[in-house]
Every structure is written in structure tokens, then in C-alpha cells.
Computed example of a mutant assay.
Amino acid sequence: MGKRQVGELEPSELVLSLIIADLASVPMQDYGIPLLTGIVPILALLCVTMILSVLTMKYVGFRAVLCGRPSIVVRNGALDQREMARNRLTVDELLEELRCQGYTDLSVVKYAILETNGKLSVLPYVNQKPPTARDMKVAVQENGLPRVVISDGRLLEHNLKALGHDRPWLERQLVQRGCKGTEEIFLMMVDEQGSVYLARRELE
């Protein structure tokens, strides 16, 4: 199904997962049923799933039929009651989702879109968005992606090399922070600019 489906199951994918689990449990519980009897329908379902995944990628119309379309439930600060009723979304559920994303006033919401995976995407008016460094014309430096260098006392040398550092550099960083060795460190992260986050291991 791909990595995306691990956290975003469509209704058809959820049903498929339940069916596969049910098919797998029957031959595992009944020793009189050959294991192949359960494997064959599971493989058939997986093949169907792969075919449907390819079709949804290539054909937009088929994707809309199988997965549905996003619904705009708030437009220009006004509730679309027909869309809410069609998706069986109550006012309490909508307000709860808005509060979870930090919005308590509907008038500041330009659009609220109920996605096909059930999540609510909220787009506020432009004047309600926090200013960015670009808006304020401030030059900022990119820190890059932090990498874990020490995890629970274990040195991850491949991450250290990927950052362009070596063991002497690491030892200097530990000495500067009063650490004698990696075994004293619970977590150490370093970004591409050399900024270090360090958490000591608590005494057991």
C-alpha cells in the first residue's frame, strides 16, 4: 500500500486490512484447514489492492470514486451546512477540530476543508497568519536537518560522518560540556551548522 497508508487509511483500505486479518486467522486456529487455503485469498486481495493503487494514481476519476473528494465545510468564514450534513459532520465536531488547530473564531477562517482521510485542513485569512522572516525581510540562516549522533550512549558514526565531523571533534564537544564519554549521553543531536543539542543520561 505504500508508506503513506500506514497513517492514512482510506475506507476501502481499512476494510481490506480487516478482511486479510480475518482470512489469516482461520487456518491459524483450525489445524484441519491447510495453510494454503488462507494464503491464496490473501495474495489475491493484495493483488487487487496493487491494481487499485495503480488505477488511483493514473486516473483521477477513478480516484474520486474510490477515495472520495475533499469537502469545503467553511467558506469565507461561513459554514456550509449542506456539506456538513452530507459528511455527517456536527457543529461540535467541527469546532473541536478547529480548537485543536488553534482557532476559536470562525470569522478568521478563510477555508476549512474536510479531507478524504477524515482530517480537517484549516486555511486562515492572510492577515491572520503569523509573519514569516520573508515578510519581515529578515535574513535567516538555514540550520539544516539535525542528525542523532549519540543515542542512549551509542555513537552513530555514519551520522557523524554525514555531518562532516570526526571523533576528535566529538570528543572536544563532550569535554566542553563536562562529559567524559558517550556512555554519559542519552541523546546528542547535531545540525548542519554545528549546533549541538545534548541530554545527559539520568542516573539509574
Score class of each variant (00 low, 15 high):
T104K: 05
R134A: 14
N143I: 07
L95G: 02
L174Y: 07
V138W: 07
L120Q: 03
D191K: 02
I39R: 07
G181L: 06
L66I: 11
I42R: 08
I33E: 10
K180S: 12
I51D: 02
G2N: 15
G7W: 14
N76Q: 09
D191R: 08
L156A: 00
S195C: 08
R82S: 04
P146S: 04
R75T: 08
L35E: 11
T132V: 02
Q141H: 09
Y103T: 01
Q176W: 05
T104I: 04
M136N: 12
T132N: 10
C47P: 01
V138M: 13
N159R: 04
R154S: 13
T37P: 01
L45E: 03
L52K: 09
L18T: 13
C67W: 01
C100G: 11
Q193K: 15
L160E: 01
I39D: 06
K119H: 13
C67E: 14
Q193N: 13
Y125K: 10
D135K: 13
A162M: 04
K3Y: 14
V91D: 12
G118K: 08
L123Y: 11
R154C: 14
G61F: 05
D105W: 02
I113F: 03
R88L: 08
G61M: 04
V6Q: 15
G153S: 01
P70K: 06
Q128C: 13
M136C: 14
A21M: 14
L106K: 10
N76T: 02
M189N: 04
L95C: 07
S12H: 12
L123V: 14
